[in-house]
Design a protein around this nucleic acid. Structure first.
Length: 229
DNA sequence: GCGACAG
DNA sequence: ATCTTGTCGC
């Protein structure tokens, strides 16, 4: 599929922040977005050894599933190196080059992209899911496993229960329970999808496990590719 | 000033 | 993210 170019590429954290601020206005936050996408792609990256600085070996995977059956429609994985050190708030610059390469190799263009991390729930309102959305033009959502910014009250214990994630007086996401009695995930919108639809999709992708089937598939594929060396 | 801090 | 043993539970 087609993906916009990444340049200019930042050499410093300051430049990376400027890029986020410059791309932020490109976001489409009007919903509702695809409620019944036919295909959904999951993105994830695995690292070899200590994953702190730039240059460490990594593998990025994109796995496209049929939304109804959750069967794999297409998948691509590429290996490379971390393009940026890990800095909270600039996480996207670490794996974006490899993810873009994997996406470009896909023989199909998915109806939705699910990122492992945050979208709008970000210090400058431009997390990985937003960045991927602007680059691809596709609807994107972010589903993170742990907290980053914002405050919230614990959601109810049942699958489907959720509570608003608030930051600076605004709702930037939702803490959503995808399985009964299991730790919730953090859902935020990326591009061209509203929060209710994002949570609806998150639940459709978690019929059995806490994390979306898309993320689980991409995680396994990237991990295997790394091990294959 | 002191923590917290997506992956 | 990744490094890791044992341990609890279905």
């Amino acid at each position: 599929m087609e993906v916009a170019d990444l340049h200019p590429w930042p050499a410093t954290p300051r430049e990376a922040e400027e890029i986020q601020d410059r791309l932020r206005p490109m976001l489409d936050l009007d919903g509702p977005g695809p409620r019944e996408p036919r295909t959904v792609a999951g993105l994830d990256v695995s690292y070899a050894g200590d994953g702190g600085g730039a240059g460490v070996r990594l593998a990025a995977a994109a796995v496209v599933l049929d939304t109804g059956s959750l069967e794999v429609v297409a998948e691509r994985v590429v290996t490379g190196t971390a393009a940026f050190p890990y800095v909270p708030g600039l996480f996207a610059f670490r794996e974006l080059p490899a993810l873009v390469e994997a996406l470009r190799a896909l023989p199909v263009s998915p109806d939705l992209l699910v990122c492992d991390g945050y979208g709008l729930a970000h210090p400058r309102r431009f997390g990985l899911a937003c960045h991927v959305g602007v680059l691809t033009g596709l609807p994107t959502i972010g589903i993170a496993k742990t907290g980053f910014i914002g405050s919230y009250d614990p959601p109810g214990r049942r699958r489907g229960d959720g509570s608003p994630l608030r930051d600076g007086g605004e709702v930037v996401g939702r803490v959503l329970r995808t399985r009964d009695g299991v730790r919730p995930v953090f859902v935020s919108v990326g591009h061209r999808v509203d929060l209710d639809t994002a949570c609806h999709l998150a639940l459709a992708l978690t019929p059995r496990y806490r994390l979306p089937e898309t993320t689980r598939r991409a995680d396994r594929l990237s991990r295997d590719a790394l091990a294959a060396r």
